[in-house]
Design a protein around this nucleic acid. Structure first.
Length: 965
RNA sequence: GCCCAGAUGGUGGAAUUGGUAGACACGAGGGACUUAAAAUCCCUUGGCCAUAACGGCCGUACGGGUUCGAGUCCCGUUCCGGGCACCA
């Protein structure tokens, strides 16, 4: 029989695919499109390990399957090429990050090519390529030139249907509005802003350029904002919220502090509602939708205006409007501007002391340490519902960044307020029937409201009406209070989101430069036709001595406005030549719209052409890790929605279906050295000695048995190692850990491909378990898949290297095996459960081998079925069977149920719910026929003896159960 | 604290969605072929009891429940993983 020479086969087909451009994709209106995408990798210096290709293989199978079904499949790949590691390497070595990045990309490409993916490499994108980041810069400028409002600021000519949740509009519309009305009446349009401003049309017209620029910044979607940012001193840059976990940076784990800085931001918060609503229209896992919902954090509540006895006023936000009668104090956030307005003269010293204490605490300390602290402001607020005067406190448990930075405290029904009240000995007034608040607060949102108002008391009257909530459920009480507050103008119903605007600038070198220059302090866009603005060369990649970002080292980084070009810094005169922005964009800038660029990667006129956008629409299947849930997957959705508003992107949601592949963990091996010796003891005997476990390279261990010679050669200090063996073998211990160099548990795909071939690797990665599940890599099982491919190969080859595929008619058994497989595999791929298809292939292969099937009518479709999983072997067999075109262009075999119809079925016969034996029934037997047959059967008699039949249950084709007593 | 997902042999994992639990693979044990090794093939492999043979009982983290019948549905508990977290 002809040997399965995978090395020869795979090399042959790699060359063939390149030569024939087998995976080239073009827009083809005559065929339905299907867009499969993987999260593109950051090309790190370590290269790919066996975990990386998991998602690529899964989506490659899907892409190949869809192509076989006749779809025009887009399955591209590229590189998220800007990033910290390359920059840090550059700082250490002076090597330009582009050099290391390109070297890493080449290595990635080489590794990827070995695995046989059907990527169309002509569509490759790199975020650091000029032709690519052109459009990142362009999108930023469009965001700068846009504001966001719920309804159009100009009457729309056709009264077009408005997008629920608002959309981006030209900032010019807002300027026109200001010219006419100032800010008057603006609130009814729902314009997203950093803070609410008030001016008249005259005041607007009287403003100078700088003032107008500052006002508009308040509304732009990409804006320069003075905000609290996550500053990481060790990294020398600010970070977005999703880049900080537990007060330290995700990359490097360095402490992060809060700092007020002027930074570029994206008004992601404006899209909060659309981001939330969109989740209902996409096929993502519940857990990731949940994560995004939490991150967006919508809460519906009420804002109420509170006046102080001193005449100041502030607004509080509450989701529990029903508890207005239980308010016993108010609390302001220490960072809030209200503190200054409210604090009385005689409490000023105390308050200042407290504020400096709060300032001294780091974000991390505040997060971990929840002890009750606070100070009395000296002022009292008047509860507009009850008329009661309650003290106003300042305390760090109230956050400035959420709601209005001020709350009403209801200690009876909020655990935080409760702790505060206990500490400062403030009254606690319960409002829910049966609630016991002597030990803790009653936070639950269920129960009947009482004590609102208390017996014998009457709430404040407005227009002859006063609020009474007694006897209502909490839900009803909330609704009633909202109505009352609104009706009497005491406040308004308000929705708040936890989602913050994204900080969009970084103090780094290796990122997209901003196409912005500063014209006498006014940030100004470099004209669109002058884009892209190329990242300038610098000598050093560190910040400058004066603390400016690395781009401050660039000598040619000034904008000549008249000549529209970049010139030497020396020419800056702030009349015609101006300095350019020194910040660069963050990592998520380039990765937010890359899926669109794949549709039309070479286009220099636009991000994508209208034609390509219309054809490819959005990603049908997106595969990637769930760790991007609150980062990339939010930013991308935001960015896409903005581009939809611009008319560039065609679908509200960029990724219709999302599959999160699990992480591949490492399986480490250990040897046990007897203390103070160079002798190693096998796992089973180690307890007899005093040993230290030592990580050993998993590549010199097979099935947990150490190759002792390889071990001696591994490191010089082990050259003289001695072993205490069990059964003549050295057995290693093992543990599941992260795959990393330091644990010597990294398994490289190249090695697997070298030893077993790409097809075996692909099969085995899928066989390991569900794609979505995290699991340890264990090379041990791979032999099973390799053996299977050899058996599969053997189906086609007879003696003397001759193909044994004949034109003979297939038997009924042959067809049954084939169609069972078609049914199973088609359903599995569609459901992304490849791990169960491979066993199906194994079973079918051994069945066909047993049947001695040689019929072309079976073996041809079989080769097509395996093509998505093991494309090389499929191509080889396809060619051997006389085809001159690629198996990729074959037709996915159609299922014919008629081969699966059984004349008889085997059914378990139960007595009293327990299966006692199996019986054959006619496939179309009715329940009654089955029961009759069971009753008459000889086997049944022992269970029926002396007993009475109580009940009979039969499901045709499934089960018969006789209950006896 | 709140929300989400999960727990099945020595191991990775199947189970037509309420109908013969443990497919398939690894590992282990036994055997065949071979001078030998590799490769290949065959048998056994959840636990306990039993046997010349048939067979029986227990078993899907734990405790209850619904049902003729539960790995699957419901209630409670434990453990592991993920998200959010002074968000009012």
């Amino acid at each position: 029989m002809k040997e399965y020479n995978f090395r020869e086969i795979e090399q042959k087909w790699h060359q063939n695919w390149v030569a024939n451009k087998t995976y080239k994709v073009t827009e083809d209106e005559s065929r339905k499109k299907f867009y499969v995408l993987n999260m593109f990798p950051y090309p790190s210096g370590a290269g790919l390990h066996v975990g990386h290709p998991l998602g690529y293989i899964a989506s490659d199978i899907y892409a190949r399957f869809k192509r076989l079904q006749g779809y025009n499949v887009l399955n591209p790949m590229g590189y998220d090429a800007y990033g910290l590691p390359a920059e840090q390497y550059a700082i250490q070595t002076g090597q330009h990050p582009e050099v290391t990045t390109f070297a890493n990309i080449d290595r990635y490409r080489e590794q990827l090519d070995k695995i046989g993916f059907c990527f169309d490499w002509d569509r490759e994108v790199r975020t650091c390529a000029l032709g690519y980041y052109h459009w990142t810069q362009w999108a930023f400028q469009k965001m700068f030139q846009s504001c966001f409002s719920l309804t159009p600021l100009t009457p729309s000519p056709k009264g077009e249907g408005e997008m629920l949740g608002g959309k981006a509009r030209p900032i010019a519309d807002l300027v026109a509005y200001f010219e006419q009305n100032g800010t008057e009446g603006l609130e009814q349009y729902g314009v997203a802003c950093s803070e609410e401003l008030n001016f008249t049309a005259e005041e607007w017209k009287a403003m100078d350029e700088k003032q107008k620029s500052d006002v508009l910044m308040n509304y732009r979607i990409a804006f320069l904002g003075e905000t609290m940012v996550n500053w990481c001193p060790q990294l020398g840059t600010v970070l977005a919220n999703d880049e900080v976990v537990d007060g330290v940076s995700v990359r490097g784990g360095f402490p992060v502090e809060q700092k007020k800085m002027r930074q570029w931001c994206l008004r992601v918060s404006a899209y909060a509602q659309r981001l939330l609503d969109g989740l209902n229209t996409i096929q993502w896992s519940d857990s990731i939708k949940e994560t995004q919902k939490n991150w967006i954090g919508r809460s519906e509540g009420t804002e109420v205006l509170i006046k102080t006895t001193e005449g100041a006023e502030f607004t509080i936000f509450t989701t529990r409007a029903d508890t207005m009668f239980g308010v016993t104090f108010f609390v302001l956030a220490p960072e809030s501007e209200l503190v200054e307005q409210v604090t009385t003269a005689d409490q000023k010293a105390e308050v200042e002391k407290y504020l400096s204490y709060v300032k001294s605490r780091t974000e991390r300390e505040r997060m971990i340490d929840h002890t009750v602290t606070g100070v009395f402001s000296g002022a009292y607020g008047i509860n507009p519902i009850t008329g009661d005067k309650c003290p106003i406190y300042i305390a760090e448990y109230v956050l400035a960044g959420y709601g209005t930075g001020a709350i009403m405290a209801v200690p009876a029904h909020d655990s935080r307020d409760y702790a505060f009240a206990k500490h400062f000995d403030l009254p606690i007034v319960p409002l829910v029937e049966g609630a016991d608040v002597s030990e803790e607060s009653y936070d639950a949102k269920e129960g009947i409201v009482t004590n609102s108002p208390a017996e014998g008391k009457v709430a404040v009257e407005y227009d002859g009406e006063s609020l009474c909530l007694n006897g209502k459920t909490i839900k009803e009480a909330i609704a009633e209070t909202k109505r009352f507050v609104k009706a009497h103008n005491l406040g308004r119903v308000k929705v708040n989101y936890r989602l913050r605007d994204a900080i969009f600038s970084r103090q780094r070198y290796w990122g997209e430069p901003f196409p912005v220059y500063y014209k006498n302090g006014i940030p100004t866009m470099i004209p669109e036709e002058c884009l892209p603005i190329e990242l300038p060369a610098v000598e050093k990649f560190l910040p400058t001595e004066t603390g400016e970002p690395p781009l401050g080292n660039a000598t040619k980084w000034a904008w000549d406005e008249a000549n529209k070009k970049i010139v030497d810094n020396a020419l800056i005169d702030n009349k015609t030549v101006f300095p350019i922005e020194l910040y660069t964009m963050p990592g998520f800038a380039g990765s937010s719209a890359y899926y669109l660029r794949y549709m039309d990667p070479q286009n220099n006129e636009a991000l994508i052409s209208e034609k390509c956008a219309d054809y490819w629409q959005n990603v049908d299947l997106y595969v990637g890790g769930s760790e991007h849930a609150t980062g990339h997957l939010i930013y991308s959705r935001f960015w896409n929605k903005f581009l939809v508003d611009l008319g560039v992107s065609k679908k509200e949601e960029p990724f219709q279906k999302l599959v999160n592949q699990g992480m591949i963990q490492g399986r480490s091996n250990f040897v046990y050295r007897i203390k103070d010796t160079n002798t190693f003891v096998s796992l089973g005997l180690k307890d007899q000695y005093d040993t230290t476990p030592i990580h050993v390279d998993v590549n010199i261990v097979k099935n947990d048995v150490l190759d002792t010679d390889a071990f001696k050669a591994w490191r010089p200090e082990y050259a003289t190692a001695e072993f205490v063996l069990e059964d003549g073998k050295y057995v290693c211990g093992w543990a599941i850990e992260k795959m990393s160099k330091s644990m010597f548990n990294v398994v490289n795909p190249d090695m697997i491909v070298e030893n077993y071939g790409a097809d075996t690797l692909r099969l085995y990665e899928m066989f390991l378990g569900p794609v979505e599940q995290s699991k340890p890599w264990d090379t041990n099982g791979i032999d099973g898949c390799f053996r299977f491919l050899k058996k599969f190969w053997a189906l086609y080859w007879g003696k003397d290297d001759q193909l044994q595929v004949t034109d003979s008619e297939p038997t009924a058994d042959n067809m049954k095996t084939l169609h069972k497989l078609i049914k199973k595999v088609s359903a599995d791929i569609e459901a992304f459960s490849y791990n169960t298809s491979i066993p199906a292939f194994m079973v079918a292969t051994s069945e066909l081998a047993q049947q001695k099937c040689t019929s072309k009518k079976v073996l041809e479709p079989l080769a097509v079925l395996i093509a998505p999983f093991a494309p090389h072997i499929a191509e080889e067999l396809w060619e051997a069977m006389g085809h001159t075109t690629s198996v990729c262009d074959a037709q996915w075999p159609e299922l014919d149920e008629k081969y699966l119809v059984e004349s008889t079925v085997k059914v378990g016969v139960q007595f009293c719910g327990k299966v006692r034996f199996t019986m054959e029934f006619a496939a179309d037997a009715t329940s009654q026929q089955m029961i009759d047959q069971v009753m008459a059967a000889e086997e049944s008699q022992r269970y029926l003896q002396d007993k009475q039949v109580v009940k009979t249950i039969a499901v045709p084709g499934r089960i018969v159960n006789i209950v006896v007593k």
